[in-house]
Write a protein that binds this DNA or RNA. Structure first.
Length: 936
RNA sequence: GCGGAUAUGGCGUAAUUGGUAGCCGCGCUAGACUUAGGAUCUAGUUCUUAACCGAGUGGGGGUUCGAGUCCCCCUAUCCGCACCA
């Protein structure tokens, strides 16, 4: 019987489904293990071969762990809310739910063909009300909690209110709590809630009609669609993720992630230590002062001017009449600049003098105050002390405006020079303070400490830590997302009662913003909250007494993906996000596989979400994802033809002399190219404009160029997994994707390479001599060599899986198969364990052979074979013999041989190999089972 | 500019973690079987060479009996951040 993958793969997939082989229970005495894939956004384009790479790796690991006796949670679901379905809805009128449903069905079909071992009973979809009920629920909890910096955890906001009532908390209060109106109280609490409403500068994308989070904007353009983004002040919901900044940094030390990803997160959070210092404004009657943040307090004696960001609220009060117009002009110019313009002109210095002066609190000097957009509103306090001698940006600004530059740090006390002669500032933190009063002569580190101490003593500043991380903007002016469980009474937001969740996404007549510029939910007619009857009612009933408007924006994509891994533990629970029993059993994700592009988005938000739920006592681990692997992209290998610049119908073969100057490269469909040789006839048929193409050939062939690029339709280099499964089978696809190279690495898809893996599987199949009566294997005791091959393979494959080196395990199978084929092995004792070994990689063929071998239970329930050390022990070992480190020949020695034995054996060698002769070596290096090196 | 990573045959990669560099696969070459081959099988394939010898893991230095592997300095490529005070 031949290896008929087309028949056996669907047959086993059905069988597995019917028998529920992959069903996972939360009750088990087995050890638990949780293997998770980043769930996909079901896009209209379907999967290409790059998507399943991580899924295959995790499936192999999950199957392996099962075979080793673990109860393995390995679920899958869909991140189903998102912009593309909504954009499509705006264009076509098709409801996003319909598009999404259709795409999910297509994804599922594609996934099923690859033979994954997911427990589909646990599937979650972020757009499913049973699921987003808990996203909304979490939002309500965030709203009702604040971050207690003393306990260093989230606490109910009611605790803060009690403190306010009894007067033990007065921070920022202008009058006693009890004398404040409801409005004032709510405004005050907004400054503490973990989910809060505030006017903040946001990334507004006019084309998408919505705001975007920082990680959704790259180079001033939206990640989705690539549209320009501008900064705008808007009233938005935000999550106070910055409250968790320190814990997010600290947690990185406890997880098993790559250093590069941890570093990406550390950079994104951007912790920096420094000082906050108050600078008074000179000549101000009201004792105006403003706060700055600096990481270099030691340079305070070098301050020659101050700079405020254009958004700074104090500009109004301090600007002199003479400068007012110029300053206001600059401020409005700076505010209206698009993000893209601003980023493109980073090097260009701009700014304006306010006419006001500040007083350096340590030197009592008057220093001019400027406004410039090189100071950012969102970082620190939006105001800086400028030290041009020791900060490159201040240096550029000072040079541009002819401001003084004063050196206060030098490599050593006698290396002071005239800053007028400098080409750049001296930013290094090494050296000593100079010209700096009481810190002169101190090392930078000590000087920093001394200045902060002094400033704290004087009560004009303090030691502090700043983070680059910003709070996460949580509103989107879109339709296809989770509705906020929020209604507005007298403009004050209130949460819906928890038992009224989920708040269902309403139907709308139009998916575009309303004529008045409100989000699409503004079109909904059923979108008011009846407080008394606790239900959603018609907008026309809004009376401001018991019926109120509901929030019109929806939550962003990361809302639903921030807690989904917890929901998988107990996905059908209607009473809770997940039961404590479930989370106590599964704990957290042991292995998480997905793309590195989520490093500053999902992976930060999910960690924050988890830590918040941890503070609530719901999740039981501080970190959600213990080990994380970023799978690399699979790139496409594009082919090119070269069209003559003079003659549009002429195509010149790649290696013809002078081709490069005469031609332009154009992408050609990889399906009409074989081994870089173009199929000329197919090319002519491919597109009408090529029908009359003529060619300049080499050796009678047209040779195409190639390049490794991203896999994309426009480059005609997309490999579709369905086609590969159709042609070679799921097992071949699975093995090949692993064989390609390390999971973490980006690597190109080589169209031909898959043949080799396919050949291996057929060869492997042949090894089992499958006839009508099953595998025709014998029960003879295998030879020593056969046993060695088997146990070597078990050892290698086991070790490789443990270190996630799947490409080398596949190679090990190939070597094993080659050896056993050469030895013509038919021993059941050898071949049976190999089936189990192959099962995680190629489950279908393994299952088929397992049954052909006479088993009637699934290979998924078999036991992982153990290797026998004794089979690996050699009687003799072939030593490489080196002289002075140079390898000369090999010699067979007993495994137990010593250095003396080796030396004796080498002396006894025949004439041709008498390297040593009678000479006495200076030294003999003998490493058992490694090498003999003789130093003469 | 800052941070992180990577560099090995024509190509994807491997190397028991300091011990014979190039496993496995693709491609290529030759042969066999075939009416045929984009099927299958066999042999070869780092470079140089008829062969031996020799050279060889981006470049340069160092540690070591011995370096792809460890240390220092360059170079190139990829990724992340980017006026973050």
């Amino acid at each position: 019987m031949d290896y008929n993958f087309r028949e056996l793969e669907p047959r086993w997939q059905n069988q597995w489904r019917q028998q529920g082989v992959y069903h996972v229970d939360n009750n088990s005495t087995k050890p638990h293990f949780y293997v998770l894939d980043m769930f996909p956004y079901p896009s209209g384009a379907g999967l290409h071969v790059g998507h399943p790479l991580g899924y295959i790796a995790s499936d192999i690991y999950a199957r392996y762990k099962r075979l080793r006796g673990y109860n393995v949670l390995h679920p899958m679901g869909y991140d189903a809310y998102g912009l593309p379905a909504e954009q499509y809805a705006i264009q076509t009128g098709q409801h996003p739910a319909v598009t999404t449903e259709k795409n999910i069905a297509r994804y599922r079909e594609q996934l099923d063909k690859i033979g994954f071992s997911y427990d589909w009973d646990r599937e979650v979809r972020t757009c499913d009300p049973h699921y987003y009920k808990w996203t909304q629920w979490t939002f309500i909890q965030l709203f009702h909690h604040y971050y207690d910096t003393e306990q260093d955890k989230a606490r109910p906001i009611s605790e803060l209110v009690s403190k306010l009532q009894n007067g033990s908390w007065t921070e920022g209060l202008v009058k006693p709590w009890n004398e404040m109106t409801e409005h004032e109280q709510q405004d005050y609490l907004m400054n503490y809630r973990l989910a809060y409403l505030a006017d903040i500068p946001v990334n507004w994308c006019p084309q998408l009609g919505t705001v975007l989070a920082n990680d959704e904007v790259v180079n001033g353009l939206s990640v989705r669609g690539g549209y320009p983004v501008e900064r705008k002040l808007m009233r938005q919901w935000s999550l106070r993720i910055t409250a968790y900044a320190q814990r997010l940094v600290d947690g990185l030390d406890t997880v098993d992630w790559t250093d590069s990803l941890k570093e990406i997160q550390r950079n994104w959070i951007g912790r920096s230590e420094g000082a906050a210092v108050w600078f008074p404004v000179a000549d101000s009657n009201e004792e105006l002062r403003f706060e700055i943040f600096t990481t270099r307090p030691d340079t305070i004696f070098g301050v020659t001017f101050m700079v405020l960001c254009p958004e700074h609220e104090m500009i109004e009060c301090i600007v002199s009449e003479a400068q007012r117009e110029e300053v206001m002009q600059y401020v409005s110019w700076a505010k209206n600049r698009s993000e893209r313009e601003r980023q493109a002109e980073v090097k260009k210095v701009s700014g304006v003098f306010t006419g006001a002066y500040a007083i350096n609190p340590l030197t009592h000097e008057r220093i001019p105050i400027y406004v410039s957009d090189y100071v950012l509103a969102g970082y620190g306090t939006g105001a800086i002390m400028a030290v041009p001698a020791h900060d490159s940006r201040d240096f550029a600004f000072a040079r541009h405006f002819g401001l003084p530059i004063r050196q206060v740090v030098a490599p050593s006390v006698d290396e002071i020079s005239d800053p007028a002669t400098w080409d750049e500032s001296l930013d290094s933190k090494t050296g000593v303070s100079v010209n700096s009063d009481f810190i002169t002569g101190m090392k930078v580190r000590d000087a920093m400490r001394a200045v902060i101490d002094r400033v704290e003593q004087m009560g004009i500043g303090h030691r502090t830590v700043n983070y680059r991380l910003r709070d996460a903007i949580f509103s989107r002016q879109r339709y296809w997302g989770e509705p906020f469980p929020i209604y507005y009474k007298d403009n004050i937001p209130y949460t819906l009662p928890e038992d009224c969740l989920p708040l269902l996404l309403p139907e709308v007549s139009d998916f575009k913003p309303t004529a008045t510029g409100e989000p699409p939910l503004g079109h909904a007619t059923q979108w008011a909250w009846d407080e008394k009857n606790r239900k959603v009612v018609d907008n026309s009933l809004i009376d401001g007494i018991s019926v109120f408007p509901l929030e019109l924006s929806t939550m962003p994509g990361f809302a639903g993906s921030s807690g989904y891994y917890l929901r998988y533990m107990d996905p059908r629970n209607e009473e809770a996000y997940f039961s404590q029993q479930a989370v106590n059993y599964w704990q957290n994700v042991d292995l998480y596989i997905g793309g590195a592009e989520h490093g500053t988005g999902h992976l930060i938000y999910a960690r924050f979400w988890n830590k918040f739920l941890f503070d609530l006592g719901l999740s039981v681990k501080q970190e959600p994802f213990q080990k994380l692997i970023n799978q690399g992209m699979i790139q496409g290998r594009s082919n090119f033809v070269y069209r003559s610049k003079e003659d549009n119908n002429l195509f010149i073969s790649k290696n013809i002399a002078g081709r490069e100057e005469k031609t332009v490269a154009i992408h050609v469909d990889i399906n009409i190219v074989d081994n870089d040789i173009l199929d000329i006839e197919k090319f002519r048929q491919w597109r009408p404009e090529f029908a009359d193409a003529r060619f300049e050939l080499e050796d009678g062939k047209y040779v195409c160029g190639w390049e490794i690029e991203k896999m994309s339709k426009s480059m005609f280099n997309v490999q579709n997994p369905d086609d590969r499964v159709e042609r070679y089978g799921a097992d071949t696809l699975r093995l090949y994707e692993m064989f390609l190279g390390p999971v973490e690495q980006a690597k190109p898809w080589d169209t031909k390479g898959i043949e080799g893996v396919f050949r291996f599987l057929r060869k492997f199949w042949k090894l089992y001599r499958v006839e009508d009566g099953g595998c025709q294997l014998n029960d003879q005791t295998p030879s020593k060599a056969e046993l060695k091959t088997l146990h070597q393979t078990i050892k290698k494959v086991t070790d490789d899986i443990e270190r996630f080196s799947f490409n080398t395990s596949v190679s090990a199978f190939m070597v094993c198969c080659n050896e056993l084929t050469a030895a013509n092995t038919a021993s059941r004792q050898v071949l049976e364990p190999l089936v189990v070994l192959l099962a995680p990689f190629a489950p279908h063929i393994a299952e088929e052979l397992w049954h052909q071998l006479g088993h009637d239970t699934s290979v998924c329930t078999a036991q992982w074979p153990a290797y026998d050390e004794t089979c690996l022990v050699e009687d003799t070992f072939t030593y490489p013999v080196s002289f002075n480190g140079k390898m000369r020949f090999t010699i067979d020695l007993p495994s137990s041989a010593s250095a003396d034995d080796a030396l004796q054996a080498i002396r006894a060698l025949p004439e041709g190999k008498k390297w040593l002769g009678d000479a006495t070596p200076k030294k003999v290096i003998f490493v058992p089972k490694k090498i003999v090196n003789i130093v003469l």
